[in-house]
Each structure stands twice: as structure tokens, then as C-alpha cells.
Design a protein around this nucleic acid. Structure first.
Length: 577
DNA sequence: GCCGTTTTCGGCCCGACTGTTTTCAGTCG
């Protein structure tokens, strides 16, 4: 694990411990914010710690957090966390992460019922000892028991590759009931996050209560968590929670803004509204007259609210693409981000020659069907034995096949390539003379993904500096939620890639999304060319493109820097260089 | 704990829903 992530986790734990001990909520929030900032931080934390005032210059990190980070850098731990750990039973932290149980409840369980972990909570529920606590009725206890059961069998977050199609189906299902006028998904899904906690749907309807009852009786529901006049939550059998909020058309923009988040972005906007004596909530942007009761409940007319644009405009900001609403560089100028339609070709795909499911012809026809002007066939190299990688002899025959099919097809340009393994030491899996005969070389790490950051950096710099390499494929080799992959000094990789005009790939497979959004941002800042490829092994895998584009947009990628979006002549020149 | 062309102290985003109360605390997003 990288230093930055380790310290971020320490601060996350500190926030949990503070919450359980009943610390000031603003202090807890500030601590969580520090954890998030450290997690996003792309610089060298140790370097910043050594520089006088280096840490304090990062917005959101004050003197005491800076001291704690320096302490961590020097000794590997933080004394306040150690102190709290000795006071608070370790098992309480996992209770905090169960839906419906918050810090106050954890604290009461601990201090008033002697509960110290999940098991003792389950025992207390079974023995009925919780009911003696105030404000702890039978229904609350039953809900907690159910949340525990759910948490024990469900994984924490869902891949965007699963959630996005489900959200689109649900939105269509609600429209099909005839009770909704408009339904769209919002939340982390709309922001294009790689994983999502739940699906947020926003709707307009002439009869909200009928839509709520239609929603809570959709097929495939395992539990209705809440059902109010304008808001309802369900859990569906895919194990995902889905929230529906029904608003009027005049509130649509404010609600979309609020429901899309991120929470931190909303806070920024609301702070900005307050600075100019206005008040932003999910019903609109209102003048702030100092009254506590909500303005919409007092019939006050909003300044803006029907569209997101109108609200940003009234706050003196330009509309912000959802992918960039993460409270990172929010005031930075937004370039025109790449869109799906900009991508004209896929430069990393497989066929039956290695571990793909379709022939060269079938892949080419699928690419034509999707409107691509070119397709690179890049089967695995010899070391990827598990993927039926090609030795030099098979590769030469395969290249001949690709060129023969290419000659027979008018509507697409086929590029004969390879996805060449990058060995642990940075050398490649084919000799230079073999590589030289290929149209395109994608070099990817597949093994030795646990090597040290130092070795990983040297390995990837060597590959990015190789004269025959065009693209570094899935640079870290991570699998989301399963393995972290390499953790190189990405800034150093970007410098090498920029110097040698080598592209870094965003592998669009939703299980990978590698580069991740923050690495894309770094690469874009270094002017590194970026490839967005699906790594398709089958026709349906071309659908992954959208996830790659969302990740690219989160990294502020423009079409200009994306080699898949260039005019074909420019690409061919670049490949030939 | 963080922050400051109003403040170095005193603020810190805002509302819906539930379950428990009988006016509201806690949780969530």
C-alpha cells in the first residue's frame, strides 16, 4: 500500500474512533476530509512533510493534522490513534459501518449495554437485552438485525459495470409504469465513479404517491427500506440499494445537483451561496432572509432551480460536468471533455488466436457495426501461457492472417499488433526484430504485480522508454476490489511516457479502469497521450468503452490528447514514428 | 479540526424519513 493511502486510512480510523468517543462532529468531519485529501494526493507525502510548512499548504490540512502526518512519517504511527485504540474496543468500528447504526447508537450500545463487537451485538439482540435501552423499540432492533444480515453477505460497493445497466433498466421500468414523466439516474453513477454505493434515481410525476407505490412493488425487490411522499428506498436482488426521489419540474435542476453530489461539491456550492446571502437546497437557490424555516415552505420564489445551469450561473460559475464534482480543483477552468462519440477505434483487443472468443473477421465486423474506422488486434505474447499467448512463430502467422483479412475489408483498417508482457525487470516478451514488424505494440504488466513501488517504477519506465512500444496497457494491473496491482511513482512514469511520446492506456474494462481517474489527471497534466481501449475478448466487451470514457472525463481528458480520437492519418503517422 | 477583504473566536450545508415519542433524536445522503 502506498504511503498516502496508509496515512489516509489512519485518519479514517481516527475519525471513526473520534465519532465513537463522542467528539465534536465538525472535528470528525475535518478529520475525514483530511483522509480524503491524503487519499487523492499525488505528490510525495514524505517530501512534503520534510519541507517546512509543506503539509500545511495543502488546503484542509491544518497544524495538528500536519503534526500527525509528520509523526507517522517518522515513526509509522500516530500517538492519538494509539491512545484511542486502547480506550475503544476494536470491534466497535465495524458496527459504525452497518446501515442504520450511527455513532450515537454505537456509543450507547458500548456504554449502556456493554457491547464491544458485532458478535456481542448479535448476542444482545438474540437475548433481548437491547429493549431496555431508551428509544430502542422492537422495530428498530429488527431493522438492525436485518442490516447486520445484509452487511454480512453483501460486498461493500458495486462496480459501475453492474450498476449502470441496472440503473438504466430501472429508469425504463419506471417510465413503463406510466406514472413517471421523467426518470434519470444521479449520484456517484452519474459522476462516473468506478464503484457505487447505491443507485439514485430522480423523477418527475403528476402523482408522486402512485409512482412511489409502483417503485416499491417493482419485480426483484428484496426489501422496502423507506416509502414516503416524495422519497423511497428499496433493495433489489442484485444486492444494491436504490433511492428514488420525486420532484416537480421547476425543482429538477436543484434536485439533480443535490442528488448527483458529491456531498463535498454540494457543500462547496452551499458555502458559495451563503457568501452572497443566499441559500441552496434541493428545491432551489433562494434569497437568505435569515429565517430558519426553509424558504420553499414559506412560499418564497427561488432565484434559480429548474436547471443545473441556472444555479451554477446564479452562483457565478459555469456548469460543471458531473464527473468533475468531487471537490478537487473545483475552481479550475474546465476544458471540453472527451465524449463517447469522439472515440473512433479500439487499439487493444483479442481473438481466438490467444484467449479471445471471436475470429479476426468477427471482431472486425463488430467494430464496423459500432462505427469504428480501425481496430488493433493485440493477442497475448508467449509468457501469458494461461491466456494461450503466441510464440514468435505463431505471432508471425497471426500477423499474416490479420493483414490478409485487412486486405479483404473495405470499411475498416486492421492493425496487426500484440499485447506484449512486460517482464518483472522491464524487458519485453519478444525480441526487437519481432516487435519491429508489428503495426502497434501494447506493452502490459501481467505478473509480478506485488513488486515494490521502486521496482515497479523502473519496470514501467523501461517499457515506456522502449522504442517499439506505443502504449502501456493497464499500467498498474489492478483489479478493483480484488488486488491493488503495482503502485509505481506515477509522476515518474508520466515524465518518461511524455519524453518518449508513449501513450498510457485507460483500460475500460469496469473491473480494471486502469489508469484510474487520478492517474489520468496526472498524465493529462504531463501531456501524455492517452489511449482508451476495451481489451475486448468478445463482441459485448466493446460496451465497456463508456466506462473508460467516464474515467477519462474524471481525469479531465480532452479528445485532443486521446489517440483513439485522432484522425486516422494522424494516428498512423504517430504509430510509424 | 479548519478557516478567515467581516472574524484568531465562532462558525461550520440542508432536508426527508423512521421510530420513538407526544416534540424530536438519529441516520442518511
Amino acid at each position: 500500500m502506498s504511503d498516502n493511502r496508509s496515512v489516509a486510512e489512519a485518519f479514517e480510523e481516527l475519525a471513526d474512533l473520534l465519532e465513537i468517543t463522542g467528539a465534536n462532529a465538525f472535528r470528525v468531519n475535518a478529520t475525514r476530509k483530511v483522509a480524503r485529501i491524503l487519499n487523492d494526493y499525488q505528490g510525495d507525502l514524505r517530501e512534503a512533510a520534510e519541507e517546512s510548512g509543506g503539509l500545511e499548504s495543502i488546503e484542509g490540512i491544518g497544524a495538528s493534522s500536519a503534526d500527525r502526518i509528520r509523526q507517522w512519517c517518522a515513526s509509522g504511527n500516530i500517538s492519538e490513534i494509539d491512545k484511542l485504540r486502547s480506550d475503544v474496543p476494536e470491534g466497535l468500528i465495524e458496527l459504525l459501518h452497518i446501515s442504520g447504526i450511527g455513532p450515537k447508537t454505537v456509543r450507547r450500545f458500548w456504554q449502556e449495554a456493554g457491547i464491544t463487537d458485532l458478535q456481542s451485538l448479535k448476542n444482545a439482540i438474540e437475548e433481548g437485552t437491547l429493549e431496555s435501552l431508551p428509544r430502542m423499540g422492537a422495530k428498530t432492533i429488527a431493522n438492525i438485525a436485518e442490516s447486520i444480515a445484509f452487511a454480512e453477505q453483501a460486498s461493500e460497493r458495486t462496480s459501475i459495470g453492474i450498476a449502470l445497466p441496472v440503473a438504466e433498466e430501472l429508469a425504463q421500468a419506471l417510465l413503463d409504469t406510466g406514472h413517471a414523466d421523467r426518470v434519470e439516474y444521479a449520484g456517484s453513477l452519474r459522476r462516473g465513479c468506478e464503484t457505487i454505493g447505491d443507485i439514485d434515481l430522480l423523477a418527475t410525476a403528476s402523482d408522486a404517491s402512485r409512482l412511489v407505490s409502483a417503485f416499491t412493488t417493482l419485480p426483484g425487490i428484496t426489501k422496502v427500506l423507506a416509502a414516503g411522499d416524495t422519497k423511497a428506498s428499496i433493495r433489489i436482488d442484485a444486492g444494491i440499494q436504490v433511492d428514488l426521489r420525486i420532484v416537480s419540474a421547476s425543482e429538477w435542476g436543484a434536485a439533480m445537483l443535490y442528488f448527483t453530489g458529491s456531498k463535498e461539491h454540494n457543500v462547496l456550492l452551499r458555502q458559495r451561496a451563503r457568501e452572497s446571502k443566499r441559500r441552496l437546497n434541493e428545491y432551489g437557490l433562494f434569497p437568505d432572509d435569515g429565517e430558519e424555516a426553509s424558504p420553499q415552505s414559506r412560499g418564497i420564489e427561488p432565484i434559480a432551480g429548474s436547471t443545473e445551469e441556472s444555479i451554477y450561473d446564479a452562483l457565478g460559475l459555469s456548469w460543471r460536468p458531473p464527473e468533475l464534482r468531487e471537490a478537487r480543483n473545483e475552481l479550475e477552468q474546465t476544458p471540453t471533455l472527451i465524449v463517447d462519440a469522439d472515440v473512433r477505434r479500439d487499439l487493444h483487443t483479442h481473438t481466438t488466436a490467444s484467449d479471445g472468443h471471436l475470429s479476426i473477421e468477427d471482431m472486425a465486423n463488430e467494430a464496423i457495426r459500432r462505427g469504428f474506422d480501425a481496430l488493433a488486434i493485440t493477442d497475448h505474447s508467449r509468457s501469458s501461457v494461461q491466456a494461450n499467448g503466441l510464440d514468435a512463430e505463431r505471432l508471425i502467422a497471426h500477423v499474416e492472417n490479420i493483414r490478409r483479412v485487412d486486405a479483404s475489408m473495405k470499411d475498416i483498417k486492421l492493425l496487426a499488433g500484440s499485447e506484449v508482457d512486460i517482464h518483472a525487470d522491464g524487458s519485453l516478451d519478444y525480441d526487437d526484430e519481432i516487435l519491429a514488424m508489428l503495426d502497434i505494440v501494447v506493452a502490459s504488466p501481467h505478473v509480478a504485480l506485488k513488486q515494490s513501488p521502486k521496482d515497479a517504477t523502473a519496470r514501467l519506465i523501461a517499457a515506456a522508454s522502449h522504442p517499439h512500444v506505443h502504449i502501456i496497457g493497464h499500467p498498474t494491473g489492478r483489479m478493483i476490489g480484488r488486488r491493488p496491482g503495482l503502485e509505481p511513482d506515477m509522476a515518474a512514469i508520466c515524465k518518461a511516457a511524455a519524453a518518449h511520446d508513449t501513450a498510457l492506456e485507460i483500460n475500460a474494462n469496469p473491473r480494471r479502469l486502469d489508469l484510474c481517474d487520478l492517474h489520468v489527471r496526472l498524465a493529462v497534466q504531463h501531456g501524455v497521450p492517452i489511449a482508451i481501449n476495451t481489451d475486448a475478448h468478445d463482441a459485448s466487451h466493446f460496451d465497456f468503452l463508456r466506462y473508460g470514457v467516464l474515467t477519462a472525463r474524471r481525469g479531465m481528458l480532452t479528445a485532443e490528447l486521446c489517440i483513439n480520437a485522432w484522425p486516422i492519418d494522424r494516428l498512423m503517422e504517430w504509430l510509424d514514428r
